[in-house]
Design a protein around this nucleic acid. Structure first.
Lengths: 222, 222
DNA sequence: CTAAGATTCAAACAATCGTTTGACACTCGC
DNA sequence: GCGAGTGTCAAACGATTGTTTGAATCTTAG
């Protein structure tokens, strides 16, 4: 928007203390990109906004990541590698420990993501980036996520399939699609919602419990 | 992306037969914008893509709508005026008819939107635009939707409140937030998902029933 | 028919986009 | 100390962005 008074050329505040040399250039770019992608979307956030917030030269993005699209992929990879490892570990722990329940499988999926949205630096922003990726039906991004993390979804789908044997495959996938969308959406708002009289940590624990019960009820419906 | 072989300068096909003079310039712009916003997002779809798909001169957007942002608002207004009127009418019909149930209130909310995603021209695209608006936390857009359609959400919230008296206000709003997010997300995928052996209309009816049962179970949980 | 208004049009506006370049500073092993 | 690699930097690249302009064309009332 060329004309029209106030441009967002200024500091783009609130991105975080990414300036000091405690973090490498690459990490500072990833952190700033995460926050700004969450705030303005992938197309809406420019590399100049990102590099400015990261206190880094504009050319650094193409030097370290090659292109904007590759930067987007790396923003996902940085978090998802660990997130999905934790999810699979939690699922396998739930499998060994007594018998599998819908609630324990859902917890294995949700809790690691919710931990991200907590004390971690920028993790809350990433959860919102994830929600954006859900809404965008960007084909290249979906391909990337499918290639790198498809096995995680398959593991969870088979666990759900064991617990809901009366549902045929199509119905199961349809319900999982809704549940994963609802969970992603809900998690994206976890950082925003406030509650009186409880710490953010307590709030998150309460919210996770409700969310899991909510999703389990939906999956079991009828 | 200046460099890199194939540019999307070409026809942007599949937007629909908006060319003939059966529709006014304004309507053709709105229709093309709807499809392209659903496909590429608000920031991702350019006015040149929109006017090209609408077979309209570039300047027509600023002439008829003033700005891109106002065009976005009008894309919403065109559908939401009727959609929310139908929702309120369905809710009031459910109120008079015998006693209110969770399922009937949910149906009043979902069915009009699902009808949109059906036979209507471009309605399916709009449902996906709606899902995008949910994921984006764009403040100006949220303000616009709140100003113009806040009363609809308030009516539904109070109906849900009557049906779920054991939930305090915060818990109710929290659940409605998740449910509306899940519904929006699910409806956005209605146009995509295919099912064997049934017509699209039958599929939609089946899906709506399941979706409502799913959401009702979640709202009633615990 | 004609003057006035409403649209459409090609062309240009300045701003911003992602990307590239070449000079400059740095850290190493030798 | 010296050259090789590794980052950083300001500056520019062409392409594309939303918006504006002024003339051309259409529509419509007097």
């Amino acid at each position: 928007m060329p004309t029209g008074g106030l441009h967002a050329q200024e500091h783009e505040s609130g991105v975080g203390i990414l300036s000091p040399e405690l973090f490498s250039t690459k990490q500072r770019i990833l952190g700033a990109a995460e926050v700004l992608f969450a705030r303005h979307g992938f197309a809406g956030a420019s590399l100049r906004q990102v590099t400015s917030a990261a206190h880094v030269n504009l050319a650094a993005v193409n030097y370290h990541f090659g292109s904007k699209e590759n930067l987007i992929n790396e923003v996902f990879r940085r978090r998802l590698d660990e997130l999905n490892a934790q999810r699979l570990q939690a699922l396998s722990a739930a499998r060994t420990r007594s018998s599998l329940t819908l609630e324990s499988v859902l917890a294995a999926f949700v809790r690691p993501a919710l931990a991200l949205s907590g004390d971690d630096h920028g993790g809350a922003a990433f959860v919102r980036v994830l929600a954006r990726a859900y809404a965008e039906h960007n084909e290249r991004l979906r391909q990337f996520l499918h290639d790198h993390y498809g096995h995680v979804l398959r593991q969870f789908a088979s666990a759900f399939g064991e617990l809901l044997p009366h549902l045929d495959k199509q119905e199961l996938y349809w319900r999982l699609d809704i549940v994963s969308g609802a969970l992603t959406y809900a998690m994206a708002d976890f950082g925003v919602i406030k509650r009186r009289g409880v710490t953010p940590e307590q709030h998150r624990d309460i919210a996770v419990d409700h969310l899991i019960k909510f999703a389990a009820a939906g999956l079991r419906a009828e």
